[in-house]
Design a protein around this nucleic acid. Structure first.
Length: 351
DNA sequence: TCTGGGGTCCTAGGACCC
DNA sequence: TCTGGGGTCCTAGGACCC
């Protein structure tokens, strides 16, 4: 199967609208105001040279690149471009498409010559959308996903059982999909620093540290193994959440009350569009400077807008008084339809 | 240096039940 | 008085992804 990843997607879409930006360092994030609390969504390659990347505070990014063009996030424009890309992928012969985000998808296909298929796909995407993408080819989803990085930008690369360790073996475990800084740190404490070391580890030795499920799974990741099934089952959201980072920390109970009301209204609107009952609520609180707590409630049987608001405000009662609040988030968990992906476990690398 | 917003899944521990 | 073994549900927290 193939893994397709658009190159500097968001920045590329912005350049299509404003060709005069081509070749300039572009940073897209927040409302495009580097004095606000926000982070970088995407930086163009010209900006990345200065050490700017996704997730970096916008303020810092702006400081690193004095001449940067800083633009606000325009989700609708990116979604529109993304839809065009995904439609192009679905139009490829024999393709089963599993979308992973705005700029990423797996494409399942049986091809005589996978490289040629990938090149044709790239050409079609470029012709239809004027966007460049990189393509990874693999005999598992994990290998295809990691292969893409070797192909960037605008290239094609293939990883298989045979060459996986040749290319990935000496790399740090953090480069695996599903291993972040925390897990790689805990692996390091077990003497496991590289992909090859993780691949060679006894899965049972990982169980005490990571649990019966995740322990063996990390070992599998190290070997690049896992499913090779691309699943195009339409996505059914488990829930919806809204969160707000306040430019000035909240200190007054009235401010908190108003904020929770506002979040509840937004979340209920999102949920209403799905037409499924709310079965749980979670309130997320980030206190200044940076500690996060969550408070959850199950909601028995009823789905009533007023009921949800009452329960959300009830959750807000758990907020610690006197501590400045930097962020509030509210998540509503929805009942799943009976026929929704029984046994299917997508994302989070959870295959 | 100071950290968005939208998601998903896993684990641990306590409460409660038989 | 001390305490098995199995199960479910709920809450909190952690981790990761795009």
């Amino acid at each position: 199967m193939l893994h397709v990843d658009l190159d500097q997607f968001i920045a590329a879409v912005e350049v299509l609208r404003r060709p005069e930006l081509a070749g300039k360092p572009i940073i897209v994030g927040g409302r495009g105001d580097p004095t606000e609390r926000a982070v970088v969504s995407t930086a163009s390659y010209e900006a990345r040279v200065f050490g700017v990347g996704s997730g970096m505070p916008l303020r810092i990014a702006a400081r690193k690149v004095p001449d940067a063009v800083i633009l606000p996030v325009d989700a609708e424009a990116y979604l529109e471009a993304s839809d065009a890309v995904m439609a192009t992928l679905r139009a490829q012969p024999g393709a089963v498409v599993q979308v992973l985000g705005w700029d990423e998808a797996f494409v399942g296909v049986e091809a005589e010559d996978p490289e040629a298929y990938a090149r044709q796909l790239q050409a079609d995407v470029l012709e239809r959308t004027q966007l460049h993408c990189s393509v990874g080819i693999g005999d598992t989803l994990i290998r295809a996903k990691n292969a893409t990085d070797f192909g960037k930008p605008a290239g094609v690369f293939r990883l298989t059982t045979a060459n996986w360790l040749d290319f990935m073996g000496d790399r740090p475990t953090k480069e695996l999909w599903g291993v972040g800084s925390k897990i790689s740190g805990r692996l390091a404490k077990l003497g496991i620093n590289t992909v090859a070391e993780l691949a060679a580890a006894d899965p049972q030795t990982l169980v005490p540290e990571f649990g019966p499920k995740m322990g063996p799974w990390y070992n599998e990741l190290g070997r690049g193994d896992g499913t090779s099934v691309v699943d195009d089952t339409p996505w059914v959201a488990r829930g919806h959440s809204r969160e707000t980072t306040f430019q000035q920390d909240l200190t007054e109970p009235d401010q908190v009350h108003d904020a929770v009301r506002g979040l509840t209204a937004q979340v209920l609107k999102d949920v209403a569009a799905e037409g499924r009952p709310v079965i749980g609520l979670t309130l997320k609180v980030r206190y200044a400077p940076f500690t996060t707590k969550t408070h959850a409630r199950k909601i028995p049987e009823t789905f009533d807008r007023e009921d949800v608001l009452v329960r959300a405000l009830d959750l807000a009662g758990a907020i610690e008084p006197g501590r400045p609040i930097r962020l509030l988030g509210l998540r509503a968990e929805m009942a799943m339809p009976d026929d929704a992906r029984k046994g299917h476990t997508p994302t989070r690398g959870g295959w």
